[in-house]
């Protein structure tokens, strides 16, 4: 006879008491504030404390705010430049540091590339403040060039990471096969290496773009007056009464970041492994 089926929950080897609850709380904790922020950006009232109905007025207000327009354009311009430059530099560096037998100085190159990840941003920020102040007083050159260089520098390690990961997953035998089929090194690079590397390059460029777009600390110290980016503009608004206009801008930035992460996730799903 088949024994009566017991209703006792089966013993699970992988579960630990309380872990599920904490994990659930963790996800709530991560998302509740963000969701609150997003919801209140659609609030018709001026204060966060009361929900006065759905409205897009704060988006309209932000759109019409000249300072916001100005900061947005500057942010996008800066992020676009920094991501293009840092991605080109990072791609070259990745080609020089992967799939190669260890050579003298390789560790030093790694350390150099990853250095912006290890040094606190505030330290880099004041260092750049000092350096650029010196250059400005010596040469009198003004403009966005300082921000572009600073952003390019700290975006390099972020662009480098996915490109390097992609390169390491690529078999050198493909390039060897191309060479065997009479391709010159230059042709091999354009016809074989680069097409295969594209997903990594795109991922790197997008990461760099988001990192540049999000930066507050270094921008705050390096910018001259009148060079507000969106994050520094938002930080500056803190001194005043915060209106849901900030929530609206935040929500838009949030959407952009989400979009980028989703695309990255998709790239990894499609091309990873």
């Amino acid at each position: 006879m088949i024994s009566p089926i017991r209703k006792r929950p089966p013993f699970s080897l992988k579960s630990q008491p309380g872990f599920g609850t904490i994990a659930g709380l963790c996800f709530v904790m991560l998302y509740a504030p963000i969701i609150t922020l997003v919801v209140y950006s659609f609030n018709a009232g001026k204060y966060i404390s009361m929900w006065e109905g759905f409205s897009l007025q704060w988006y309209v207000a932000a759109w019409g705010n000249e300072a916001v327009q100005d900061a947005t354009i500057r942010s996008l311009y800066l992020a676009a430049q920094a991501s293009v430059y840092s991605t080109i530099l990072a791609t070259m560096a990745a080609l020089g540091t992967t799939r190669t037998p260890p050579f003298r100085g390789l560790t030093a190159i790694y350390a150099m590339i990853n250095q912006p990840l290890m040094v606190p941003e505030i330290v880099t920020a004041v260092a750049l403040l000092i350096l650029f102040a010196m250059i400005k007083s010596l040469t009198g050159i003004q403009g966005m060039v300082y921000l572009v260089i600073a952003h390019t520098a700290f975006c390099i390690p972020f662009a480098y990471l996915p490109i390097r990961a992609r390169l390491e997953g690529m078999d050198l035998i493909l390039e060897t096969a191309a060479a065997d089929l009479y391709a010159t090194p230059w042709k091999t690079f354009w016809r074989i290496t680069l097409p295969l590397l594209w997903p990594g390059i795109i991922a790197g460029a997008m990461l760099a773009f988001v990192i540049s777009l999000d930066d507050v600390v270094i921008t705050e110290f390096v910018k001259s007056s009148g060079q507000e980016t969106l994050p520094t503009y938002m930080l500056g608004q803190l001194r005043r009464v915060i209106t849901p206009e900030i929530n609206a801008i935040s929500t838009l930035l949030l959407g952009l970041s989400m979009l980028v992460v989703c695309v990255l996730f998709f790239i990894e799903r499609k091309f990873g492994k």
């Binding site: 020089g96 150099m112 040094v119 330290v123 000092i130 350096l131 260089i149 390019t152």
Partner: peptide
């Protein structure tokens, strides 16, 4: 090795100018 260094050099120059170098000035 020379090729590897040449490829890495532009990134290293930017990093030296705007990340590592300024630390010395501090």
């Amino acid at each position: 090795t020379r090729r590897n260094w040449l490829l890495s050099a532009p990134a290293l120059v930017v990093l030296a100018a705007a990340a590592s170098g300024p630390l010395l000035i501090v």
